[in-house]
């Protein structure tokens, strides 16, 4: 398989496995945690792609692998059409500048002792991007304004605790924008925030894409958050993408039983529209002992005998929509 040149990022059969034994101890355990287990995914240029799935399904591990903080166990990764395994030296450093991450918690991801200017300037110093402090300051001010913190100079000397939650998350975003990335990996950037601040940050991200053409991989466990602004949605279960499609396709006509269950539990903000919920009991099973056959079969409400035997391939439902469930072929 090759990557499409229109993609900002492409993954082919990507795996990331960890040792199940605790680090530092004598390894009594040679089993593996299959955190990312065969992911194919393309992030288009200027696209907002939502990656949705329960806690522990491998979303953050996937993001850390894309960021270069974790080494893939196997598989291929292409950055703007180039195989990342072949990148060396300056080209590799440039890629690391172009892919930036926004972390979940605006209360924990900012150093309380540093001023806003120092926080946003730090990546510039690390990457030696601008030689003089005047140039750096101009860039910091631009990034703060791009993140909607205006007038930017009134924020430079402040400390994180002097800002509201929404402003802090904007600082986190400004620090990720300062290196002029083409790809943002946003890992649950709003789940700790109030509804109205949440709307503010989501609108900001949509605006950044519109104005600067940034591609965004938006990681969340909540469909509600992404429905309004993602172009496509990818649903992840136990290290695999089980369904992917344009936002309307996935929301209106979900085909994988896991997607259907997840959608059924999204709280609807109207008591007249309370729906029948398919609550899957327990939590995502342990990625150490993967179930045989379809990895979803132990929790699947419609599983049949064959689901225990065959690992379902992705079935193409439309040029943009596919899902990996054995029972889909039935109703074709």
């Amino acid at each position: 398989m090759t990557s499409s040149p229109s993609s900002a990022l492409s993954l082919r059969n990507l795996h990331k496995h960890f040792d199940a034994g605790r680090p530092g101890l004598l390894r009594r355990d040679d089993r593996l945690v299959h955190a990312v287990d065969g992911v194919d995914l393309d992030l288009g240029r200027g696209e907002i792609l939502a990656l949705v799935g329960e806690s522990g399904c491998g979303k953050s591990t996937l993001a850390l692998t894309l960021l270069g903080l974790e080494r893939p166990t196997s598989g291929e990764m292409y950055f703007e059409g180039t195989d990342v395994a072949r990148l060396r030296g300056a080209a590799l450093k440039d890629m690391h500048k172009r892919i930036q991450m926004v972390f979940q918690d605006p209360y924990e991801s900012l150093n309380p002792m540093m001023t806003i200017e120092e926080i946003v300037e730090e990546p510039l110093i690390v990457h030696r991007s601008f030689p003089t402090s005047d140039q750096r300051r101009a860039r910091v001010i631009q990034a703060l304004e791009d993140a909607g913190l205006k007038p930017a100079d009134s924020f430079l000397d402040r400390l994180p605790h002097q800002l509201s939650g929404g402003q802090r998350q904007r600082v986190v975003i400004a620090a990720s924008l300062v290196l002029d990335p083409t790809i943002l990996l946003a890992d649950e950037p709003v789940s700790m925030l109030d509804v109205s601040i949440r709307a503010e940050i989501l609108n900001l991200l949509a605006d950044l894409r519109a104005r600067q053409g940034i591609s965004i991989l938006f990681i969340t466990h909540d469909f509600g958050t992404v429905a309004h602004f993602a172009d496509r949605i990818a649903v992840m279960y136990l290290g695999r993408i089980v369904e992917i499609g344009r936002t309307e396709e996935v929301l209106r006509a979900p085909r994988h039983p896991y997607t259907k269950a997840l959608l059924s539990v999204v709280p609807v903000p109207n008591p007249r529209l309370r729906q029948k919920r398919t609550i899957l009991q327990g939590e995502t099973p342990n990625p150490i002992d993967l179930p045989t056959g379809c990895r979803f079969h132990p929790r699947c409400p419609i599983a049949e005998d064959r689901c225990r035997l065959t690992d379902p391939p992705a079935v193409t439902l439309s040029p943009s929509h596919s899902a990996a469930c054995l029972l889909i072929e039935n109703d074709k």
Partner: peptide, 22 residues
């Protein structure tokens, strides 16, 4: 205003409203 700021899956096209200020 709070209701307009809350994402609603049944109306994915509607723009999210934020309440400026705190």
């Amino acid at each position: 205003e709070l209701l307009k700021a809350f994402p609603d899956l049944s109306k994915p096209q509607a723009a999210l409203n934020s309440i400026p200020g705190y």
